[in-house]
Amino acid sequence: MDETGKELVLALYDYQEKSPREVTMKKGDILTLLNSTNKDWWKVEVNDRQGFVPAAYVKKL
């Protein structure tokens, strides 16, 4: 969790967005987890953008 109590995830792999609903991340990025109710796609925030990334590409910290 960060200082505001939000849950964080670590990008395990690079991911290039394939639609406007997704976000690009690089391996090693720390992202804010917004929603993990879907087992396949998690909603995150990175670089002031919100979108989805494959759940298998990130790990909760």
Rank of each mutant, 00 (worst) to 15 (best):
I30D: 01
T4Q: 12
G51I: 04
E17K: 13
K39G: 09
L33F: 03
A56C: 14
K39M: 10
E7L: 11
L10K: 07
P54N: 02
D2H: 14
K27Y: 04
Q50D: 06
M25G: 00
V58Y: 01
E3Y: 09
T4C: 15
N38Q: 09
K60F: 08
Y13L: 09
K60I: 12
M25P: 01
N35P: 03
V46L: 15
S36D: 15
V44P: 00
G51K: 02
Y15M: 01
L10C: 09
K59F: 09
V53A: 02
F52E: 03
L31Q: 00
R21M: 13
K26G: 04
V53E: 01
D29V: 05
E45A: 11
K60L: 13
S19G: 12
A55W: 02
K43D: 03
Y15D: 00
A56Y: 09
L33N: 00
P20F: 08
V58D: 01
W41K: 02
D40K: 13
E3L: 12
E45K: 10
E22F: 06
K26S: 08
S19H: 11
L8P: 04
I30L: 07
E45V: 09
P54A: 02
G5E: 13
N47T: 09
G5N: 12
V53H: 00
L31T: 00
A11T: 03
N38P: 04
N38I: 05
A56E: 09
V44Q: 00
K59I: 15
Q16C: 11
S36R: 08
K18V: 08
V44H: 00
V23P: 01
Q50S: 11
T4W: 12
K27R: 11
P20H: 10
Q16W: 14
R49D: 04
T37C: 14
E3C: 15
V9K: 00
K18E: 07
D29W: 14
K39Q: 11
V9H: 03
D48L: 10
G28P: 00
G5Y: 12
E22Y: 06
E7R: 12
W42I: 04
Y13I: 09
Y13C: 14
G28V: 01
D48V: 06
E7T: 14
G5F: 13
K6T: 12
K18N: 10
P20T: 09
E17W: 06
L10Y: 11
L8K: 12
K27H: 06
K43H: 10
E17I: 06
K39D: 10
N38K: 07
E22T: 08
K60S: 07
D48F: 10
V9S: 02
T32F: 12
K39C: 10
A56R: 15
K27T: 07
R49N: 05
L12Y: 04
K18A: 10
V58L: 15
T37G: 09
G5M: 12
L10E: 11
K6W: 11
A55T: 05
L34I: 14
K27P: 02
W42R: 01
Q16R: 11
T37A: 12
D40M: 14
Y15P: 01
E45I: 09
S19Y: 06
V58R: 00
Y15V: 01
D2C: 15
V46S: 15
V53K: 00
V44Y: 01
D29F: 05
A55V: 06
Y57E: 02
I30V: 10
T24I: 03
T24V: 03
S36K: 07
V9T: 02
E7G: 10
E17P: 14
T37V: 09
V9R: 02
L34D: 01
E3T: 14
L34G: 01
Q50M: 09
T4R: 10
T32M: 11
K18F: 05
K6Q: 10
F52T: 03
D40Y: 15
D2S: 14
P54I: 03
E45L: 10
D29M: 15
K6A: 10
K39N: 10
T32P: 15
L12G: 02
A55Q: 05
A55P: 04
V44L: 04
W42K: 01
Y15Q: 00
T37Y: 09
T37W: 09
N47W: 10
K59P: 01
W41D: 01
G5S: 13
L61I: 14
W42F: 07
V53N: 01
V58S: 01
K6C: 14
V46Q: 15
K6M: 10
S19W: 06
I30A: 03
L31M: 14
D2Y: 09
E3K: 12
K60T: 08
Q50H: 08
Q16G: 07
N38H: 11
T4I: 12
D29K: 03
D48K: 10
G5R: 14
M1R: 11
P20A: 11
M1H: 14
V44W: 01
L12V: 07
D14P: 05
K6D: 08
V58A: 03
Y13A: 10
G5D: 12
S36N: 08
L61C: 12
W42G: 00
R21E: 13
Y15A: 01
K27Q: 08
R49F: 04
G5C: 15
L33V: 06
L10W: 07
K6Y: 13
Y13T: 07
A55E: 03
N35C: 11
T4V: 13
E22L: 05
N35E: 13
E7P: 10
D29R: 03
T24R: 05
E7Q: 15
L34S: 02
K39T: 10
N47Y: 13
Q16D: 13
A11D: 00
V23R: 02
E3Q: 14
L12F: 03
G51W: 04
L10R: 09
K60E: 05
M1D: 13
G5H: 14
L31Y: 09
W42E: 01
L12E: 04
D14Y: 04
N47V: 11
L12S: 02
Y15F: 07
V53P: 00
A55F: 03
M1Y: 14
G28N: 06
K59L: 13
E17T: 08
P54F: 03
W42S: 02
D29S: 07
G28D: 05
R21L: 13
K60P: 09
P20D: 11
K6I: 12
P54E: 01
L10F: 09
M1G: 14
P54H: 02
Y13R: 15
M1Q: 13
V58C: 15
K43Q: 12
L31I: 07
W41R: 03
F52G: 01
W41S: 02
L61T: 06
T37L: 08
G51V: 04
Y57Q: 04
T37K: 11
R21C: 15
M1K: 13
V44S: 00
E3N: 14
